[in-house]
Design a protein around this nucleic acid. Structure first.
Lengths: 199, 199
DNA sequence: GTCTATAATCTGATAGAC
DNA sequence: GTCTATCAGATTATAGAC
């Protein structure tokens, strides 16, 4: 008792985020209506506005949560000192973090254009923070005969692009297990940057 | 004379496609209205329906035109017999074809989910046709000590992903000229696949 | 906190005059 | 081929009852 009929503020918020994430990923932010999200949650459209001031804030909240989790999870990792080991760790981390978050990844990359300029600046800065982690690794081993990287910025973008694209086709139970995919991409990335003494 | 006032069928069609492509790329298919497209062209919304039966057909026409041009342009290329030379040719071709077509590339990859199932099947098949060209090159040199590719399918996807991503950041007049970008990515791709005797 | 009802606006698409 | 006018329905967001 003591709970107002139909009042579930503690679970409705997360359910709204989950429904919005699934629907935005499948149909796109602009193509999804607040009524659709409400219907998925099992409330009326007006009730959503107890949890978000508007639709745009719902989108940016999803993106922020994703980027914050990405950065805080990486920050909590034990990154090896050795550049080559650090690179291998990054590749594994990136794949393992992104593969189970298909919807969030999709939204983070596809809906940037639907952000207001201020929100775009915030999200874009977080994305660059993440890229900087990889570029720092490449720089640290470059010119020490461990890595031979001509342009660390472009190589960073190339690696992240090819790793992130895995989320667009990888499905559990497909031709390759996740561990096999990891090994294949590890080998590709290591070859891309290998210097004279690279393992 | 002899032209009806306000009638320009020969130029309005292409202008509608150009306006739709620019607007779809910037704001997304679902976020763009037929009135916006018409406004950009300088006609009323109703006039658009002389050129397309509906909005969806406009989208798929843009995608088809892009994929058809991609495939026919590649088909007209002189592809070297040597696998290594063929790979280098493919990388150069991909970059040179895609960089000047930022909007079309963006739409082709981002708006697949807004296609009807039948239209999706058509476009997806064309995309696979293009991928097959690269995979065929990788296969042809694999196991001959020219290439050492563990999984030709994944390597194909990885290469295309990293090359296509260039369109998201490359701008004329930026830090690197297009020729430099080409050389950097050529080196990265060649390293990814190089076998014992690879150049 | 959720509901119903509604304001104000926009949507894709069509009909018929010119 | 383009226009104006319009249909039927959807949109985001708000107001007020409970």
């Amino acid at each position: 008792m003591a709970r107002t009929q139909g009042s579930f503020s503690d679970v409705t918020g997360p359910r709204i985020h989950a429904a919005a994430q699934a629907l935005f990923a499948r149909h796109g932010y602009a193509a999804v209506s607040m009524r659709q999200i409400a219907g998925e949650v099992g409330v009326q459209a007006g009730a959503l506005y107890n949890y978000t001031p508007d639709k745009q804030s719902l989108l940016v909240a999803l993106m922020r949560a994703h980027m914050d989790e990405l950065l805080s999870t990486y920050a909590a990792e034990d990154v090896p000192d050795d550049p080559c080991a650090a690179l291998r760790h990054f590749v594994r981390f990136h794949i393992r973090f992104h593969l189970p978050r298909h919807d969030a990844v999709f939204i983070a990359y596809m809906e940037l254009r639907n952000l207001s300029p201020e929100n775009f600046t915030v999200i874009e800065a977080l994305r660059r923070d993440y890229e900087t982690h990889l570029e720092t690794i490449l720089r640290s081993g470059n010119g020490t005969s461990v890595f031979d990287v001509r342009d660390t910025k472009l190589t960073t973008l190339a690696i992240i692009a090819m790793l992130t694209e895995i989320t667009t086709w990888y499905r559990e139970g497909g031709r390759l297990a996740q561990a096999e995919v990891e090994e294949i991409y590890l080998a590709l990335v290591c070859r891309m940057v290998r210097g004279a003494e690279g393992g």
